[in-house]
């Protein structure tokens, strides 16, 4: 209720009373929140509290896991994503960046062109444009433009992660989900990715899971604090870090969590 009042922008994603079970084990409890368009929303909380699980419900990646049961509503652009059966369309609208860079063992070009090709785009000129535009969008074009045809796995971890972001935006999604995108990166690469996120939010709605609270404070507009599968607090990032309402949030953001 107080959560609703906080939202000022337009909600892109409405989540209401979401419960998720891995078999008999419940991992999410009555999660409700509205994620705003063209903002960065950070999900923080101790490990195992359900951040990744929640993130993966948004593009239905949990469908791949045997025995997952989900109830509640997730509405994206006025469509309940679990009532519609077109998962492929949903996933083309939502890009995802994973914890470890997971480029395919093929060339940089083929990686970025993978999504558009899967949608049936074959025209070389169109693909060339998409690839260049996406790599520029991910601020990695200058570093890779001379080696587009060489294996993507030859890049450094930080470069790979930015190509992963390019691969995701090549689909021209509305939303980008990121699950601890910098946890496997060195500090300089991390900084580059954070700068990129600040750029990307002009065009995309971004939801980012992070265990790094400074990062959440740096990059996000709003922050949701998860604990044991529940949202304890969801507010403007500044408030969460400097003026938390819940004692548990305060303990966590000040590092006094036990």
């Amino acid at each position: 209720m107080s959560l609703m009042k906080q939202s000022e922008g337009t909600a892109k994603i409405n989540v209401k009373d979401l419960n998720l079970y891995y078999g008999d084990k419940q991992a999410l409890f009555d999660v409700s929140l509205n994620i705003e368009e063209k903002k960065v929303t950070a999900l923080i909380g101790p490990s195992g509290c359900g951040k990744s699980t929640f993130l993966r419900t948004l593009n239905r990646m949990n469908d791949l896991i045997d025995g997952v049961k989900i109830n509640g509503d997730i509405v994206i652009d006025n469509e309940d994503i679990y009532k519609s059966s077109d998962v492929i369309k949903l996933r083309t609208k939502i890009g995802m960046v994973f914890q470890k860079p997971n480029l395919f063992p093929m060339s940089i070009y083929d990686n970025v062109a993978y999504g558009p090709r899967a949608q049936g785009i074959k025209n070389k000129k169109v693909l060339n444009e998409i690839v260049e535009e996406s790599l520029r969008g991910a601020a990695i074009w200058d570093e890779v433009k001379d080696r587009l045809k060489s294996s993507a796995l030859g890049l450094s971890g930080g470069q790979q992660q930015r190509v992963c972001i390019a691969r995701a935006i090549a689909m021209k999604p509305d939303i980008i989900l990121m699950d601890e995108p910098t946890s496997a990166l060195d500090p300089i690469s991390t900084l580059k990715v954070e700068e990129l996120i600040a750029q990307l939010k002009k065009e995309y709605t971004i939801v980012i899971v992070t265990h790094n609270m400074q990062q959440a404070a740096r990059v996000s507009d709003k922050t949701a604090f998860f604990l044991n599968g529940e949202i304890v607090e969801y507010d403007v990032t500044n408030n969460v870090f400097s003026n938390p309402k819940d004692q548990r949030t305060e303990d966590y953001v000040t590092g006094r969590f036990g």
């Binding site: 990646m61 791949l64 492929i88 890009g95 995802m96 997971n102």
Partner: peptide
């Protein structure tokens, strides 16, 4: 992670297997 990456890009399951 390869499978997840491909599916998250909107590829079908069969497409993911063969590509």
């Amino acid at each position: 992670t390869y499978r997840e990456g491909s599916l998250a890009l909107g590829a079908s399951e069969i497409g993911t297997i063969f590509k």
